Measured scan of single mutants.
Amino acid sequence: MIFPGATVRVTNVDDTYYRFEGLVQRVSDGKAAVLFENGNWDKLVTFRLSELEAVK
């Protein structure tokens, strides 16, 4: 189960963010908004829950 605050990895091989890890900001309607941070940039991207896996 994916909840806000969880760290997730993108599993969709066709996505630009494949294998990126980010922090879930919100979850609704089968989608999750994931925040990616890297140095001087932040990006908030929405994914279907089926495209994400929780990082242990």
Rank of each mutant, 00 (worst) to 15 (best):
F3A: 10
L49G: 02
E53S: 06
G22C: 03
A54M: 13
F47A: 01
N40L: 11
R26P: 01
V55F: 07
W41D: 10
D29W: 07
T46F: 13
Q25C: 14
A33N: 07
I2L: 06
D15I: 06
N40A: 12
G39C: 11
V45H: 06
M1S: 12
E21T: 13
L35Y: 11
L23G: 02
A33W: 15
L52A: 00
D29Q: 08
E21R: 09
G39P: 07
V24S: 00
E37K: 15
K43M: 13
A6T: 11
G30A: 05
N40G: 12
L49Y: 05
L23Q: 09
L35H: 07
A32L: 03
E21W: 08
T11Y: 03
D15G: 07
S50H: 09
V13N: 06
G22P: 00
E53H: 05
F20W: 15
L44V: 13
R48N: 14
E37M: 14
V34K: 00
D15N: 15
V45Q: 05
D42W: 15
W41V: 11
K43T: 12
F3W: 09
D29P: 05
W41I: 12
D42R: 15
N12D: 06
R19Q: 13
V55C: 06
K31S: 09
G30H: 05
W41R: 09
G30M: 05
N38M: 14
V45R: 11
L44S: 06
V8W: 01
A32F: 03
R48T: 10
V10C: 05
R19E: 08
V45N: 03
V8H: 01
V27M: 07
V27L: 07
A33G: 05
N12S: 08
V55E: 03
R19P: 05
K43E: 11
R48K: 13
E51Y: 06
S50V: 08
Y17S: 03
V24D: 00
L49T: 07
D14C: 13
A6V: 14
D29T: 05
R48A: 13
K56I: 13
A54G: 06
F20Y: 11
A54S: 08
T11P: 02
N12L: 07
T7R: 15
F36Y: 02
N12I: 06
L52H: 00
R48E: 13
L49N: 03
M1L: 12
